[in-house]
Simulated scan of single mutants.
Amino acid sequence: MFAALGVFTQSTLAPLGQSARGMAYKLKSHSGAKKRFFPTSNGNYKRWQVGLRHLNQSFSAERVNRLSRMVLVDNTQKKMLRRALPYSC
């Protein structure tokens, strides 16, 4: 009865996905990068330094303290991280 009146059509009964509503697809963030890199307010990323987990008993205390600090990533890593973490900065 309603189909004869033209009230309901097949397109209105179908569930609306992102493409039907004119929305863009969501990008997925790299889950490993989310755990290892932290965005700063000015567009850089911070990361922990490597070499502190094990086999460091021969390191000096100065070196261990230096390795325990976070550092900023360089420009080549920043370019890669912008694609891996699209919604971070």
Rank of each mutant, 00 (worst) to 15 (best):
M1L: 13
M1E: 12
A3T: 04
L5D: 08
L5T: 11
L5F: 10
V7A: 01
F8T: 14
Q10F: 08
S11W: 06
T12G: 09
L13P: 01
A14S: 09
P15T: 01
P15G: 04
P15K: 02
L16S: 09
L16Q: 13
L16E: 12
G17P: 05
Q18D: 00
Q18T: 04
Q18I: 00
S19K: 15
S19D: 13
A20N: 02
A20K: 01
A20F: 08
A20P: 02
R21M: 14
M23C: 04
M23H: 09
M23V: 04
A24L: 03
A24T: 06
L27S: 12
K28L: 13
S29I: 02
S31Y: 04
G32M: 10
G32S: 11
A33W: 03
K34Q: 11
R36Y: 07
F37N: 05
F37E: 05
P39S: 06
T40K: 10
S41C: 09
N42Q: 00
G43R: 11
Y45Q: 07
K46C: 02
K46S: 02
R47H: 00
R47N: 04
R47F: 05
W48N: 08
Q49I: 03
V50K: 13
V50S: 12
V50G: 00
L52N: 10
R53A: 10
H54Y: 04
H54A: 01
L55H: 05
N56Y: 06
S58Y: 05
S58G: 11
S58F: 11
F59P: 06
E62M: 13
E62T: 14
V64A: 03
V64N: 03
V64E: 11
S68M: 11
S68F: 07
V71N: 01
L72H: 13
L72Y: 15
L72D: 14
L72K: 12
L72M: 03
D74L: 06
N75Q: 14
N75P: 09
N75M: 12
T76S: 15
Q77M: 14
Q77E: 15
K78W: 05
K79V: 15
K79G: 07
K79Y: 08
M80H: 08
M80I: 14
M80C: 04
L81G: 06
R82I: 10
R82E: 15
R82M: 15
A84C: 11
P86T: 05
S88F: 09
C89K: 14
C89M: 10
